[in-house]
């Protein structure tokens, strides 16, 4: 495999809440290969959005990147001066938000807003900007005539297409999409995902898709980074993390999702309990209180074990994953814990 486009090493982000620090991301490491879609999955509060925002250093006022590296094209984004970072945003790394309404200004037409980006940041003149705007609308499948519309005149799905066009404006290398389809209905969701996939393949983009929905990941992604309680539980290809997961948390998630193509009689198995409070996380493995395979040794910090090349797993028992997977497929395994 060639050099990855983005390489995150031991990233730490903490929020100051009153006098306490909450380590929302506590040592996350993963690679984003060139020309692939990577799903960053996890439940609310697992730190996935914080990671995504830390990559462009657009984080809340009370948050700081307290450690680690973000290597992008030979630069450490965690360290470079703000001015340099600002030059990178949009041009090299673009962002698609969950709700496009938040990134579009309601009082200007879409064409004006696209033009603003193209002229200010892309150094184009008016004519070039207009041509590029039309090209972008063609790419995301919206009629050119609608360039002069205001954001509120678009439906939710169309607005998300506009957001994609906006992100693509300056030919970025990496697109970070934060729950881009969560607010949309299934049909529109599918259409947007298809569009994103098609553009990614055509333009050879790298995409990070932040989502809680593993069905979306399964549909569109090549690789997955599974996060739990501020740490990366495991990462690898889709087959490694979804079809044959090696971390008990991913195994549990697999059982918790209804599968429309599966047998009608299938029983869903929840993971009992709830994700830990990050202000006061459990010692050792953070999944331990909910894990049916927890042993005494899980009270100590779990190691990162490469169960296969490019498939690191944060678990004491990662080497036994073959057997655990068989156990995890049984409902009783998870019920015994409760």
């Amino acid at each position: 495999m060639t050099e990855p486009l983005l390489s995150v090493r031991d990233l730490r982000v903490s929020y100051q809440v009153g006098r306490n620090f909450v380590h929302a991301v506590d040592g996350a490491s993963f690679d984003i290969p060139r020309g692939s879609i990577t799903g960053l999955v996890g439940e609310s509060g697992c730190g996935k959005t914080t990671v995504a925002r830390a990559l462009t250093r657009v984080i809340a006022d009370n948050a700081t990147i307290s450690g680690g590296q973000i290597l992008f094209d030979g630069k450490d984004l965690a360290k470079i001066p703000e001015k340099e970072m600002n030059a990178l945003r949009w041009r090299d790394i673009a962002f698609i938000p969950q709700s496009a309404m938040n990134s579009l200004d309601p009082v200007y037409t879409v064409e004006y807003q696209l033009g603003e980006v193209l002229r200010r940041r892309g150094g184009m003149d008016r004519k070039q900007a207009r041509a590029r705007s039309e090209e972008l609308f063609d790419m995301v499948g919206i009629d050119r005539g609608r360039l002069t519309d205001y954001p509120h005149q678009f439906s939710g799905g169309m607005r998300q297409r506009v957001a994609i066009a906006l992100a693509l404006a300056l030919d970025p290398k990496l697109i970070i999409a934060d729950e881009p389809v969560t607010a949309l209905d299934v049909i529109v969701q599918r259409q947007i995902l298809d569009q994103l996939k098609e553009l990614q393949t055509r333009l050879g983009l790298s995409v990070i898709l932040v989502t809680h929905d593993i069905s979306v990941v399964a549909y569109i992604c090549d690789r997955t980074v599974v996060m739990y309680a501020g740490k990366v539980a495991e990462s690898g290809t889709m087959q490694q993390t979804l079809t044959a997961p090696s971390h008990p948390y991913s195994m549990g998630l697999r059982n918790a999702f209804p599968d429309l193509q599966g047998a009608a009689s299938g029983i869903l198995t929840p993971i009992e309990g709830a994700p830990p409070n990050l202000a006061n996380p459990p010692a050792g493995c953070r999944f331990r209180p909910r894990c049916p395979f927890a042993l005494d040794l899980c009270g100590s910090e779990p190691p990162v074990i490469d169960v296969a090349p490019g498939h690191p797993v944060l678990c004491h028992r990662a080497s036994e994953s073959e057997n655990l997977r068989i156990e995890a497929a049984k409902t009783e395994t998870w019920m015994a814990r409760a």
């Binding site: 969701q189 599918r190 995902l193 069905s215 992604c221 979804l242 079809t243 999702f257 193509q261």
Partner: peptide
Amino acid sequence: AVPVPNPD
């Protein structure tokens, strides 16, 4: 349109 949690 319903996505399926199975990459295959």
